[in-house]
């Protein structure tokens, strides 16, 4: 026998009624686990069970000739899968699925890039200078709480119904988040790091480049992540109100023609893209900023 702490697998077959669900991988010998946050990791088994259960429940509620949910407004997952295949292959209203998705994505990217390029320098200036803080603080505090969508009618009047108004709306949605993230990144630098750098002969420019910028990077990254989420939500809602192409537009048009299957497909794709963006950002963060939270 191997010398190892006794585990469920080592028990006699008669006692081994249940497979080891959940805590696989933790060889914890702790006696107190309830309330210990470090013991609560995501159980992959239950994640699959939860997702699968949801799908089965949905299928159950929509199955048969007389389903519990009205099939006109709540189609079954099978119908939606077919709609997805159709939409993906042939598109909807002479526009391919990829065109709709990429129209939405490119708006978000344009808005984010411009919002970031404006927001980071302003946030840095606010973190570094009393005067800049005085100038921008009231502007940021006044405009940040306004939900971007409230401005959509104005933006449409100013910039037209086309791309410009949407991209500008996303610039608006992301720029405040980026300003605040950059500012708090700058303010988060510890005095002793700055002092140490000065004592090592760094000048102001070098302090900015080699101390303040890398120190602010984790916060800036969080800002990008948050702004991306806000922009995605704002854009889809803006597209519902009016656009030529886009996932939100497709939802709106499909609902007017009572194609609930297409509506569902788009909602799911919006969710999947949103979650993927978050996951890509987390992956990049782990790669680019391994020192995060370790200062």
């Amino acid at each position: 026998m191997k010398e190892s702490p006794p585990s469920v697998d080592a028990l006699p077959a008669g006692l081994r009624k249940f497979p080891r669900f959940g805590r696989r991988g933790t060889q914890s010998r702790k006696t107190v686990t309830f309330g210990d946050a470090s013991e609560v990791t995501t159980s992959k088994v239950w994640a699959v069970v939860s997702l699968g259960g949801l799908l089965v429940l949905w299928w159950y509620l929509t199955r048969g000739p007389e389903p519990i949910l009205d099939e006109k407004t709540f189609p079954s997952p099978v119908v939606i899968w077919d709609a997805f295949v159709e939409w993906w292959q042939d598109g909807y209203r002479r526009t391919s699925a990829w065109e709709h998705a990429s129209a939405s994505l490119s708006r978000v990217l344009k808005g984010m890039v411009i919002g970031t390029v404006i927001g980071i320098p302003v946030g840095f200036a606010m973190g570094l200078s009393r005067i800049m803080r005085g100038i921008f603080d009231p502007i940021v505090e006044l405009f940040r709480p306004i939900p971007p969508l409230a401005l959509l009618p104005l933006f449409i009047m100013w910039f037209g119904i086309g791309e410009e108004s949407k991209v500008n709306l996303l610039v608006w949605a992301s720029v405040w988040v980026m300003i605040i993230a950059a500012r708090s990144g700058v303010l988060g630098v510890s005095g002793s790091k700055v002092h140490a750098a000065y004592s090592l002969g760094a000048n102001k420019w070098q302090i900015l480049r080699y101390v303040i910028m890398p120190n602010a990077l984790p916060e800036v990254f969080t800002g990008v992540r948050v702004a991306l989420g806000v922009s995605w939500g704002t854009l889809i809602a803006a597209e519902l109100i009016g656009a030529e192409k886009g996932l939100g537009t497709t939802i709106y048009i499909a609902s007017r023609f009572f194609r609930m299957d297409i509506v569902f497909v788009n909602i799911i794709i919006i969710g999947v893209i949103g979650a993927s963006m978050e996951m890509i950002m987390r992956f990049l963060e782990a790669r680019l900023i391994p020192w995060r939270g370790k200062g």
């Binding site: 510890s190 002092h195 140490a196 760094a202 890398p214 990077l217 020192w291 370790k294 200062g295």
Partner: peptide, 25 residues
């Protein structure tokens, strides 16, 4: 030169880069 109690190293740089900070500046 200054040596602080803690937290004054640059955590985004490795050991060599921290030590070479002054000469590099």
């Amino acid at each position: 030169g200054m040596v602080f109690q803690q937290g004054a190293l640059f955590e985004w740089q490795n050991v060599s880069q921290n030590v070479s900070f002054g000469p590099r500046m």
